[in-house]
């Protein structure tokens, strides 16, 4: 059972739809017992970092998620804001502490000749192939104005060229996260989800 964390930040319906399509049992929830009972935690989300942390706090989810992911080592998938929140610190719209599971911070794009948000389909470079091995294409859908800067390069699973090598994905132990939206990235996105959830093609 996958617990898709419901904390009032964005399009959880799309994530659920992708999981349903793959016949992965899931529940959209902020209920502590349901989250404790799940084998896998999925943190989706779009919107601002500070609002995301505030919403997690209001639902008393910060300690609970830390316990499930960092202590019990449940498999974790973070998507978009769900990837950014696992860092130590964000600045959107003001400086704010994150979940702090991965060392590093989230900063705004400072690009002279490129648009912000980074929006659309972009081609990634995979550094850690664990969850990317079944992708036939490497085009994924991005939509973000902030990007993560992990302290340890070893945590970077993929980068994407948008003026420089932007971190597109993070992986460390049971934690996997993507800045792009696999649920909006057609077959390539489905391939990642299949691999992550251990579904044989």
């Amino acid at each position: 059972m996958v617990a898709i964390i419901d904390y009032g930040m964005g399009n959880v319906a799309s994530v659920q739809k992708a999981l349903n399509f793959l016949s992965v049992k899931n529940v959209i929830t902020d209920d502590h017992d349901a989250i404790k009972a799940a084998d896998i935690i999925l943190l989706p989300g779009v919107g601002s970092f500070a609002q995301g942390m505030k919403n997690l706090q209001e639902r008393n989810l910060i300690e609970l998620l830390k316990d499930e992911v960092m202590v019990k080592k449940k498999k974790f998938l973070g998507i978009c804001l769900g990837m950014q929140l696992i860092m130590e610190k964000g600045i959107e719209p003001h400086e704010c502490e994150g979940l702090g599971w991965i060392e590093g911070q989230v900063v705004k794009f400072e690009l002279e000749h490129l648009n912000v948000p980074h929006m659309g389909w972009n081609n990634i470079d995979v550094l850690n192939n664990t969850y990317y091995e079944n992708c036939e294409t490497k085009d994924f859908y991005f939509i973000h104005s902030y990007h993560v800067l992990p302290k340890n390069k070893i945590d970077i699973a993929a980068t994407v060229d948008y003026g420089f090598d932007v971190v597109a994905s993070i992986q460390r132990g049971n934690i996997f996260a993507t800045q792009f939206h696999p649920e909006k990235s057609q077959n390539a996105g489905l391939a990642i989800l299949k691999t992550f959830f251990g579904i044989n093609a």
Partner: peptide
């Protein structure tokens, strides 16, 4: 933009 993010 403040509620849902500029990307929305």
């Amino acid at each position: 933009a403040k509620t849902f993010g500029v990307q929305f």
